[in-house]
Design a protein around this nucleic acid. Structure first.
Length: 216
DNA sequence: GCCCAGGTGGGTA
DNA sequence: TACCCACATGGG
C-alpha cells in the first residue's frame, strides 16, 4: 500500500506532468519572485519582474543601488510595493553582509542552518524561505502554502496538524528528501488547487476524485 | 462592485 | 497559541 502522500503525487504527476517550476532565468530572479509573489497573483509578479529586467535591476547590485522609491515604482504591479521594495532591499543587504552579495556562497553551507538565518531576515517568512531554498538553491526543503493546507486538510491527511512547520514536517517525514520531488509536488498542488478546488462541481475529471470527500 | 491571489509582521488576549 | 489587521495591484 503506497503512502497517500506519495500516491497523490503520482496521481497529480500522471495528470499534469512536470510543470517545470520556478519560471525564472536565474536563482536571483527566483528569490525576487518569491518575495514579490507574497499574497499576489503570479501574473502581476511577472509584470514587476519585466520592469526590473528592463531597468537592469535584476541583480543583487542593482537592487542594492537603486533608491527604494524608484524600486517601489518599478514593482508597483505586484502590489504592496512599499513593503516589498523594503523587503527586497533587506534581503539584498543581508546577502551582501553575510555572503558577499553572492547566492552561490549563500547556498554553499548546510541548508538547514541557512534556513534559520534566512528566517531572521525581515520579510522572509517560512514559505518565501523554503521557496528560495528549493527553487533557487535546489535544496530539499518542502514548500507549504495555503493551497497545501487547504487541499490536504480537506483530504483528511493532516490529522490535526496546523501551522506551517507541523504541516511541512508531515510531508518531509513521509516523502524521500528529494529536491526534484518537492519541486514538482509543490507546483502540482498549486496547479491542482487553481484548477479544481474552488469550482462548484469539483469532481468529474479531477485527478483526485477518488480520494476527495466532496465527491458526492 | 466584489473576491481572490504561489504571505509577513505587528499587535492583542 | 490563536485571531486580528495593514499592506495594494490587476484579472475574473
Amino acid at each position: 500500500m503506497t503512502d497517500p502522500f506519495l500516491q497523490i503525487f503520482q496521481l497529480l504527476y500522471r495528470h499534469y506532468g512536470p510543470l517545470n517550476w520556478w519560471p525564472a532565468e536565474t536563482p536571483f530572479e527566483v528569490c525576487v519572485g518569491a518575495i514579490l509573489t507574497q499574497n499576489t497573483n503570479w501574473g502581476n509578479v511577472e509584470k514587476a519582474i519585466a520592469n526590473l529586467k528592463e531597468l537592469g535591476l535584476l541583480s543583487p547590485e542593482g537592487i542594492r543601488e537603486i533608491e527604494t522609491e524608484r524600486l517601489a515604482a518599478a514593482i508597483r504591479p505586484a502590489g504592496y510595493y512599499n513593503i516589498k521594495s523594503q523587503r527586497l532591499k533587506e534581503f539584498v543587504e543581508w546577502l551582501f553582509r553575510h555572503h558577499g552579495g553572492k547566492l552561490e556562497r549563500m547556498f554553499a553551507g548546510p541548508w538547514q542552518e541557512l534556513r534559520e538565518e534566512l528566517l531572521k531576515v525581515r520579510g522572509i517568512g517560512r514559505e518565501t524561505c523554503d521557496a528560495i531554498l528549493l527553487y533557487a538553491g535546489h535544496k530539499s526543503s518542502f514548500v507549504v502554502d495555503a493551497y497545501t493546507a487547504r487541499l490536504f486538510g480537506r483530504l483528511g491527511l493532516l490529522d490535526g496538524a496546523s501551522g506551517y512547520e507541523a504541516i511541512r514536517r508531515r510531508f518531509m517525514e513521509r516523502l524521500p528528501g528529494d529536491a526534484q520531488l518537492y519541486n514538482d509536488y509543490h507546483a502540482l498542488i498549486v496547479q491542482q488547487s487553481k484548477e479544481w478546488c474552488r469550482k462548484k462541481p469539483c469532481c468529474t475529471g479531477c485527478p483526485l476524485s477518488d480520494l476527495c470527500p466532496r465527491q458526492l
